[in-house]
Amino acid sequence: MAVKKIIIANRNNISFKVLGKKPLLEELYSQGLDIPFGCKYGGCITCAAKLLKGKVDQSSQVALNNRQIKNGYVLLCVAQAITDCIFEVGVESHDKLYRNPFLDKLEPHELKADIVNKNIDEI
């Protein structure tokens, strides 16, 4: 399996090499990148980072809704790199992660995957 290059755009473009077999949080943290995290199972968005370029597999995450995913958010605690990636990390990258749910409602297709899929099943 090829080595992937991970660049952190908002930390002076510091770069890391990862194998893509473990979650990015684990790989980057062990190489010294200090980023917030919480649950470590893809359930709480504390570790959310914005993917600017590249591809990841975060199929085991259960916390992001489809709008957050569309805006590029990735939960590093479960995501594995498929290609080279460029990220913004930490709270500085969270400009589109949070929204006032009363002022800005989600469309049905923007909800979390389990709800969207359940609705499709029922139709």
Binding site: P108, L111, K112
Partner: peptide
């Protein structure tokens, strides 16, 4: 569920 409220509140949920 933690997976629901941890990421934030969505009225639709």
């Amino acid at each position: 569920a933690p997976n629901t409220f941890m990421p934030g509140f969505d009225l639709e949920e």
